[in-house]
Write a protein that binds this DNA or RNA. Structure first.
Length: 176
DNA sequence: AGCAAGATCGGT
DNA sequence: CCGATCTTGCTG
């Protein structure tokens, strides 16, 4: 018998380049399992951060205590605190030693990267969690997903140079 | 040891 | 538009 969990995304998906991963992520499910109950949320809004050369990426200054997880192979979570208040949820992408990550900015019915982690109870204990093996959080393909993806410049990165500010690396599911 | 900045949010 | 709130990374 086929169950939805057979749709869990495997390693090969996350090993793709971050731009491929990011633009195909809207429409997929973020699954949270607690007390044996799985809750599925459609991902609607993401951004790609790509390598040390990307002036908007945390890895622009190389490997540090905080960014070391970005150098892991794709499929693990990068969770960090911003402004002393909000947990940001990122999915590491690409092969080992290539620092790339997808910031999840919105879910169906929960907009905003800080609001969604608060709603789901995601905090620093999720940092470095492996989406391919975890029993409390993973991603699933959504065969029924339809809807167009629109692109926009990334948000909140005024510190980056113009060339990087203007990259259309935000991917939003149309009508959300 | 001290400091400035930050991939945000909610209230004026 | 501004303040909250605290970790991180850089400087000395």
């Amino acid at each position: 018998m086929t169950t939805l969990s057979d749709h869990r995304l495997e390693r090969s998906y996350f090993l793709q380049d971050v731009l491929q991963v990011a633009r195909s992520m809207p429409g997929k499910y973020l699954v949270m399992q607690n007390a044996g109950e799985a809750h599925r949320f459609v991902i609607t809004d993401v951004e790609a951060y790509r390598g040390e050369e990307d002036e908007a990426c945390h890895a622009r200054k190389g490997k540090t205590g905080r960014t070391r997880v970005m150098y892991f192979q794709g499929g693990v979570l990068y969770v960090y605190l911003i402004y002393g208040m909000h947990w940001m949820l990122n999915v590491v992408a690409g092969p080992q030693e290539e620092p790339q990550a997808v910031l999840i900015r919105g879910l169906q019915s929960i907009n905003g990267p800080g609001r969604l982690t608060r709603h789901l109870g995601i905090d620093k204990t999720y940092n470095e969690e492996d989406l391919v093996r975890s029993s409390r959080i993973w991603l699933e393909d959504n065969p029924a997903s339809e809807g167009r993806i629109i692109t926009r410049p990334r948000v909140g990165i005024d510190y980056a140079g113009k060339r990087w500010r203007e990259k259309p690396w935000r991917f939003i599911l149309q009508d959300h």
